[in-house]
Computed example of a mutant assay.
Amino acid sequence: MDRPLSRQSRQQARQRAITEAVMAEGAIRIEQLADRFGISVMTVHRDLDELEGRGLLRKDRGVATAMSTALVESSDVYRSSRQLAEKEALARAALELIEPGQAIILDDSTTTLHLVPLLHTKTPLTVITNTLPIMEQLKGTRGITLLSVGGQFYNWCSAFMGRMAVEAFASLRADVLVMSTSAITDDIAFHQTLETVDVKRAMFESASTRILLADHTKFDKRALHAMLPLSEFDAVVVDADTDRAHVDRLRKRGVKVLVARKAPREARS
């Protein structure tokens, strides 16, 4: 039986829907959003204030306007609603590469976030992250030692980044890094923002084993900043819908590619 959604979950789902609606149309009047989603104008104002604070939308004179597509697509509000089944399959495959007693680094990707609820099966673990939603989910979890990395907080991705975060990761040595990427071009992982690239590279250098999770859509996307060649990862985990040509090409280049099985239906309910 499905559990009822919490107030926070309903709010997040509504804000994702509002963001996507405004992105699709460019601009929508606040009264129209209230009618479309069956909520009060006051609730729309509160949602838009939060989304504007995260740099995703602009609210002006009763109209909500879309911001930069690249920034919106980088945001956790947008990313968390995409490729859910694929992300779950990738997370379950990554779980098999983690052993009890290890120290693991988790990045700010929504793909990695799907791994978090599964980690209790691998305790004891030390989890190191710069990502607020992961901290909130894992705090107080029995068998998990949680190390948070600070720095400048970025609303659009709910993560701490900047020089402080980079230096903090540089001072650590972990067993495993699990991370994702925004896009893959010429078999190189890319991201839209340089701040994210800097932190993820620092994470990469701090871990003995590096695992990249990438659903099939990453091969069709583009981003501005090169992060790391896929050949430098110890394992690249892709979902079952990834074009076989990508898998074969990467394997010929010596990349260890693991194809995640689709999660059983009961696991997704």
Rank of each mutant, 00 (worst) to 15 (best):
V197S: 05
V127R: 00
F190V: 00
D187E: 14
M179D: 08
T209R: 15
R210C: 11
E136Y: 05
V116W: 05
R142W: 07
L95V: 04
A91Q: 02
M135I: 13
A85E: 14
K200S: 04
Q102V: 00
Q83C: 13
L84K: 14
H120L: 03
L118G: 06
A174R: 03
A207G: 10
P133V: 11
H191V: 09
T110Q: 06
P117V: 00
F160P: 01
R163K: 15
T111E: 08
G101D: 05
F204A: 07
A174W: 10
H114C: 08
I105A: 12
P124H: 03
P124E: 03
A89E: 08
T145I: 07
D215I: 01
Q152R: 13
L90K: 02
L97V: 06
R173Y: 00
L132Q: 09
L90R: 02
S109D: 07
H216R: 11
S158G: 13
L212E: 08
N130K: 02
R92L: 05
S158P: 12
Q102H: 03
Q83I: 00
R82M: 14
S171T: 09
K200T: 06
L113W: 10
A159G: 13
V127D: 05
E167C: 02
E99N: 09
Q137T: 15
L125W: 04
A202E: 01
R163N: 15
T209N: 09
I98M: 08
A183R: 04
D187C: 09
R201N: 13
L95G: 03
V199M: 04
L213R: 01
S206L: 02
L119G: 05
K200R: 07
I144P: 04
S171Y: 03
E88F: 14
A170W: 01
G150A: 09
T131M: 02
R163V: 15
G150M: 07
P124A: 01
E86P: 04
L84A: 14
L84Q: 14
S148I: 03
E88P: 08
T181E: 00
E167W: 01
A189T: 07
V166C: 06
S180E: 03
Y154S: 12
M161K: 12
T129L: 00
D108P: 06
G140H: 04
K218H: 09
A189Q: 04
A183L: 09
D108A: 15
K139E: 00
D108H: 14
A168L: 07
G143D: 12
A89Y: 07
T131H: 15
A168W: 00
D186A: 15
A214I: 04
V166S: 01
G151E: 11
L113Q: 06
K139A: 11
S208G: 14
E195F: 11
L147H: 10
E99D: 11
L146R: 10
L212T: 07
H114W: 13
L84V: 15
V178F: 12
A170N: 11
A94D: 05
F153M: 06
G162C: 07
V166W: 02
L95K: 08
T145L: 12
T131V: 10
L106C: 03
E195G: 12
L113C: 00
S206Y: 05
G140W: 09
L147A: 06
R163H: 15
A159V: 08
T121Q: 14
T131S: 12
V197Q: 02
L212K: 05
Q192E: 14
H120Q: 10
T111D: 07
I184P: 04
C157M: 08
Q192H: 14
Q192M: 06
S180H: 03
P133Y: 10
